[in-house]
């Protein structure tokens, strides 16, 4: 968010956000987390800033409205001998109460519009990941390469979450938020996602990337991200998709570009049948080019 006004608002926001940000020293979500994460991408930062701006404006309006009502309740009581006034309208007040909120709304809409215009640009991405939602797992395809895999709930969570399993969720690391094969992405790279689904509608959401996007059968949606900080980012399916909707988490592992290139080469080797290794050598070189090192050329 570039608007100076928003910067100022962020300054005011600090005390309010303090509790939230203190809690977010570990990777979100964390216990007692009160606020939206600032996340790891431009989109999540913008969402957070707009969220705080609207929230604080609502708080300011709330102070006026609630202040007025609590004062009335305290002051204008029959038991205190209050005598009701006779007036029942005031054109000036009504005009002001229409125009001022309209101006406040415009002040909110303007930065939101700017963020949306900037976010709509999915061009110039270094690589594309195709995400397909299934009941109840995700499939990730590194478009243009042989690398693709399914990603589903990790086994220890899957066993613990059965009704009457007797396994304590507190004993499981990242209960319900861990998968067998995370989506691996390079840092500092604009990654484009195309999303669809095989059976019913799902929604792919990692809060620290800043958005969710529905994965709909028969329809292709797209979105993008660029994460600079390597790390592990967790999310969940956000659209009701049947009985195991609560059990199809998302894990994105962002690696430095060098580590990613290594990881990708390993995956590609594993994905290529040994008999075809020689034949695939050329293609592999091309696709590595496309998917990993190309990332560094992009700003």
């Amino acid at each position: 968010m570039t608007a100076t006004r928003l910067r100022l608002l962020r300054l005011i926001a600090v005390p309010v956000a303090l509790v939230g940000s203190l809690a977010v020293s570990a990777d979100p979500p964390v216990r007692w987390q009160l606020n939206m994460t600032e996340g790891a991408s431009q989109a999540s930062q913008s969402a957070h800033d707009l969220h705080m701006m609207t929230f604080l404006l609502c708080c300011a309006i709330g102070v006026i409205v609630y202040g007025m009502m609590f004062f009335s309740v305290w002051k204008f009581r029959k038991s205190k001998g209050a005598v009701p006034a006779k007036w029942s309208h005031n054109n000036m007040a009504e005009a002001v109460l229409t125009v001022v909120p309209a101006l406040i709304l415009m002040a909110m809409a303007w930065p939101a519009t700017k963020v949306m215009l900037a976010a709509a640009d999915t061009a110039n991405s270094a690589m594309t990941i195709k995400i397909t939602g299934y009941q109840w797992k995700w499939r990730y395809e590194y478009v243009g390469t042989p690398v693709s895999f399914f990603s589903s709930l990790k086994r220890d969570s899957a066993e613990a979450r059965r009704l009457g399993s007797g396994i304590d969720p507190y004993a499981i690391d990242n209960y319900l938020l861990d998968v067998d094969h995370p989506l691996v992405l390079p840092a500092d790279t604009k990654v484009r996602f195309v999303l669809t689904a095989e059976d019913v509608i799902h929604s792919w959401w990692v809060p620290e990337l800043g958005w969710k996007q529905d994965a709909i059968p028969g329809i292709i949606n797209d979105n993008w991200t660029r994460v600079s900080k390597p790390g592990i980012y967790r999310g969940q399916c956000a659209e009701l998709c049947g009985k195991d909707h609560g059990f199809m988490p998302i894990v994105v592992e962002v690696k430095s570009q060098a580590e990613y290139a290594q990881w990708f080469a390993d995956q590609q080797a594993a994905a290529t049948p040994p008999a075809a290794v020689a034949a695939a050598a050329v293609a592999a070189a091309e696709t590595t080019d496309l998917a990993a090192p190309a990332a560094s050329q992009l700003n």
Partner: peptide, 9 residues
């Protein structure tokens, strides 16, 4: 809120 203002509640 204005209805409650200067009323006798």
């Amino acid at each position: 809120a204005f209805t409650m203002w200067q009323s006798s509640m």
